[in-house]
């Protein structure tokens, strides 16, 4: 039964980055049947992520449409979401969409007063890029510029 539920969730897209599903993002933590109720536990990416409420209702609607009448979507904080949970498939989709996927581990020590990393340009694949701003078009992205093809691009930053 759980497998069937995962298949349904694989069709629920992230409202901010529609090429990714909530499963690609790694926000779905657990699926459990508690008596009559199907309980789906999800974890927020950024704590202020305005998409969370929408993700919650999209999951509920998708399941209800597929005949699950008693659904509870539970928000859990622990363990906290990290970009390590994003699936490889998800990262490939991001790249194709034009957003550089998170590179390396979430334990990014260079975050504090260090050098910004050289991210690969999703368009021309050059690493001759530079950080424009650690804060991009949404909470989860940084803004980069490619010095090779001169195009700006979003980088899904490590968390």
């Amino acid at each position: 039964m759980s497998d069937a539920v995962w298949e349904i969730l694989k069709k629920v897209s992230d409202p901010e980055i529609p090429v990714l599903t909530v499963v690609d993002m790694g926000v779905v933590r657990k699926i459990e049947q508690e008596a009559e109720t199907l309980v789906v536990s999800i974890t927020p990416t950024y704590s202020g992520c305005p998409a969370m409420d929408e993700i919650e209702s999209n999951i509920r609607w998708a399941l209800e449409e597929n005949g699950y009448t008693s659904v509870e979507v539970k928000l859990i904080l622990s363990p906290p979401w990290t970009t390590d949970w994003m699936t490889d498939e998800g990262k490939a989709k991001l790249q194709e969409y034009g957003i550089a996927p998170p590179e390396g581990s979430s334990a990014d020590k260079s975050v504090l007063f260090g050098e910004a990393k050289k991210v690969m340009c999703p368009r021309c694949k050059s690493r001759n890029t530079k950080l424009v701003s650690q804060f991009g078009s949404t909470a989860c992205k940084a803004l980069y510029k490619c010095d090779e093809c001169q195009e700006p691009f979003d980088y899904f930053k490590c968390l």
Binding site: S47, G48, C49, F135, G136, A139, L143
Partner: peptide, 20 residues
């Protein structure tokens, strides 16, 4: 624009933490 966005992002993070 970039810095305007940076501050809005940080405001949103603070708000998210406040909500929890």
């Amino acid at each position: 624009l970039e810095q305007d966005i940076a501050l809005s992002n940080m405001a949103l993070d603070q708000l998210g933490q406040a909500r929890m």
